[in-house]
Design a protein around this nucleic acid. Structure first.
Length: 482
RNA sequence: CGGGGCGUGGCGCAGUUUGGCUAGCGCGCUACAAUGGGGUUGUAGAGGUCGACGGUUCAAGUCCGUCCGCCCCGACCA
């Protein structure tokens, strides 16, 4: 429960991030390098993310299922690009029960292969399609450099896997799930995102096309926060996922996969956090209202606590997540800072003055200082608290959107791009999608192509990529990225 | 794997250059008391194989050698 100030955000962003994660009691490193221990408060935040997504998946007809952690090495090898892409980051089990195994098993880095196997068993006819499955699981990727939540050896995620009768349906599903991610990020996490298509170099190993949502962090770096892949028929052919169509002919399925991970928690921290610590959007905050009683002696305490309990009770019956901070051993000032560090969106203070005036003091986390404080009558507390939570949610999205938009710039060439990147923004520039252009840009600016945003107008005929001089396929965002 | 940095109570560090007495400091922790509308204060306490191994020396946290681990910057990535 240690609670110290955090490193100012502007001073050393990476230090600030680690500070916030650890001091707000979200997570810690584990004994194994790069692995993470998620503490209860961090896990509650992840559960809020899970619930927000799961609700949406259920609404679109997806069913949850569970597939094994261990995958035969031979499965990985069935799809050539897939194994090539993942081979360097596989954890491999070679021994079991004290014996060397005939065939090594890999700890899943993702489950296209086993699920492909399962789908091949489940699907016989066009009547079995579409098959819409989601799995909540942990996966392991042997990353070289790790950071809490953003990149860990083992991480928690959901991976959706679907099979369809036609290419069009698969494509529709791919984009539908991208929309769901964007909707979740925007409306629940209060993070505005850019939906876009990844370049060939950055697409998922084995996918035909990969889409992603990209979010801007507090240091203006980009974070890929969710991906949706149209897998074409690659996995269907590798795993023999076939159905009999209406004409009694065997057809290969068209499959998709999509995922969002505990990285989203990192996104929330970095998109919203400030010098005082975490700022959590009310929809996802494990604690929405922290109630802090203030008193000097037993007499005041009993009066104050009467109000605290009565007010909290009404809020709780409404389904709000309320926490009464009745710690005796720390001062109110300490508690204020503590709840700010933990990102609680609304703090409700009750002291002797409030008891006297039949009021409570409401303090919002999204606006610093006096402007974020207001007194509210006790008998109207339900309305003022719910309305304040809504305001905070809306305002956090507004703040994040304004911040992002102020840092997006259209650029025409490498020189302009370099200037924008050096100043910490994102540059939108015509791009041919090639690896050479990407390499050149990375060398000059350290930025990488994030995505071709989906909402763009087609380029005028003859628009060239300023790096290679070849025809551009569209405008892409370039940014420094995690 | 390349470049840089660091290993000293739970955490953050000082001490190492120039070897020397009982290894210090801050935070946290324990106990008691006062305090309490923005990170309280006092008193008393607990807690250490100085990363590991070997060497030099009357004497090593400090010098030498080997090894191990961690962090940051790159390449790779949700």
């Amino acid at each position: 429960m240690a609670s110290q100030g955090v490193t100012p955000r502007a001073e050393d962003y990476s230090r600030w991030y680690t500070d916030v994660v650890q001091k707000a009691d979200l997570a810690d490193y584990a004994p194994v390098r790069g692995c993470m221990i998620i503490k209860p408060y961090g896990y509650e935040l992840w559960e809020a993310v899970k619930n927000g997504l799961d609700k949406r998946f259920k609404a679109t007809g997806h069913k949850n299922a569970y597939f094994p952690l261990l995958i035969p090495m031979s499965f990985m090898k069935k799809e050539a690009e897939h194994v090539e892409g993942f081979a360097p980051e596989l954890a491999v089990v070679t021994h079991g029960g004290g014996e060397e195994l005939d065939e090594p098993l890999v700890v899943r880095p993702t489950s296209e292969t086993v699920i492909g196997y399962a789908f091949s068993q489940w699907i016989q006819s066009y009547r079995d399609l579409p098959l819409l499955i989601n799995q909540w699981a942990n996966v392991v990727r042997w990353e070289l450099r790790t950071r809490l939540f953003l990149r860990t050896l083992e991480f928690l995620w959901q991976e959706g896997h679907t099979a369809h009768a036609t290419r069009e349906e698969a494509q529709e599903e791919t984009l539908r799930m991208l929309d769901i991610y964007a909707d979740f990020a925007t409306n629940d996490a209060a993070i505005p995102v850019i939906k876009g298509r990844k370049s060939n170099q950055e697409k998922f190993a084995g996918a035909e096309v990969t889409y992603a949502i990209e979010a801007m962090m507090g240091n203006k770096w980009a974070l890929q926060s969710g991906t949706s892949h149209n897998l074409g028929q690659g996995f269907a052919k590798a795993f023999d996922i076939k159905y009999l169509d209406k004409n009694n002919e065997q057809q290969y399925c068209w499959t998709t996969s999509w995922g969002m991970s505990t990285r989203m928690v990192g996104a929330i921290i970095m998109a919203h956090g400030d010098d005082k610590g975490l700022r959590l959007p009310p929809r996802l905050a494990p604690i929405q209202v922290a109630v802090v009683p203030i008193y000097k002696n037993d007499e005041e305490k009993s009066k104050v606590m009467d109000v605290v309990l009565r007010v909290s009770e009404t809020l709780l019956t409404l389904g709000l997540r309320v926490h009464i901070d009745d710690r005796e051993d720390v001062t109110p000032g300490f508690k204020f800072n503590d709840w700010e560090l933990r990102g609680v969106p609304v703090r409700l203070e009750v002291g002797p003055k409030d008891v006297e005036k039949n009021s409570v003091m409401l303090v919002r986390r999204d606006i610093a200082g006096k402007a974020g404080k207001e007194s509210a009558p006790q008998d109207d507390v339900v309305r003022s608290v719910t309305s304040l939570l809504n305001k905070v949610q809306t305002n956090m999205l507004k703040q994040a959107t304004e911040f992002r938009d102020a840092n997006l710039h259209e650029v025409a060439n490498l020189k302009e791009l370099k200037k924008v990147i050096d100043e910490g923004g994102w540059g939108l520039m015509p791009y041919d999608g090639s690896a050479e252009a990407e390499e050149k840009i990375r060398e000059e600016t350290k930025a990488t192509p994030r995505c071709f945003p989906l909402d763009q107008e087609p380029l005028p005929d003859g628009t060239k990529c300023p790096i290679t001089g070849r025809d551009a396929v569209g405008k892409a965002y370039f940014a420094r990225a995690y």
